[in-house]
Design a protein around this nucleic acid. Structure first.
Lengths: 112, 112
DNA sequence: AACGTCCATGTAGACACTCTACATGTAGAC
DNA sequence: GTCTACATGTAGAGTGTCTACATGGACGTT
């Protein structure tokens, strides 16, 4: 249940959102829940982060959305575009190399 | 030589700096070079990032500094305090858990 | 009817850190 | 005398996450 430093999330949020949308379209609230589940509770992303991010990603062309009504409630459901799918792949490899770089710099060395 | 997305660095810079100072005091310019070496060229951190970060870390109490003149050039050399050493340890475990969380959310799943 | 909770979307403004671009100056090579 | 490497620093822009607030429907309980 350890929580994640908000600042550390910068620049990774987009990839996380695209990733949970990979196999199924979801609405904002469900995306927040999905992030929490997949991180075993570590990612408690506030609505003030997710909703603007979704609009940004749609504006950029990585997502598109449509309104639906389920059980009397209105939802805006987001779906990956093909540009979004391509971008997600790039973000995954970018993350791997980023993580490698940070891990290697952070690696403790024997005193010399 | 892949370069790292600047935004991704947010919230990790402090840990990186503390880490290169772990076993030897260094001045700002040397810290920049050390980061570049340890990352095989991936981290090209500009002076406008490092110098303010060093002052911040000193103000917080994780570093202290003293001036030296070497070969006619003035250097401000930074050294880890014991608070900084403790903080570095915390940042290392924080990084590991952060990386684990992101990796796990980004993990591709089989379509279902 | 009133109340509380979960579901659901959204905005405004604060905040913090990295970046670009600029300013300054010494040492040493050519 | 010009250029490059060494060395420190600041001002201001940019931007993405956060807190806090605003709104409203559905549903259960009392």
């Amino acid at each position: 249940m350890g929580s994640v430093n908000p600042d550390a999330l910068r620049g990774h949020m987009d990839a996380l959102i695209l990733s949970v949308l990979e196999h199924e379209p979801l609405h904002g609230y469900a995306i927040i829940e999905a992030l929490q589940e997949r991180s075993s509770g570590a990612l408690a992303v506030p609505t003030g982060t997710v909703y603007p991010a979704l609009r940004r990603l749609e504006r950029t062309g990585y997502l598109d959305s449509e309104w639906a009504t389920v059980g009397g409630r209105k939802r805006r459901t987001y779906r990956l575009t093909s540009a979004g799918r391509t971008h997600l792949a790039g973000e995954r490899t970018a993350w791997q190399s980023f993580a490698g770089v940070i891990t290697s710099v952070l690696q403790p060395r024997s005193a010399g």
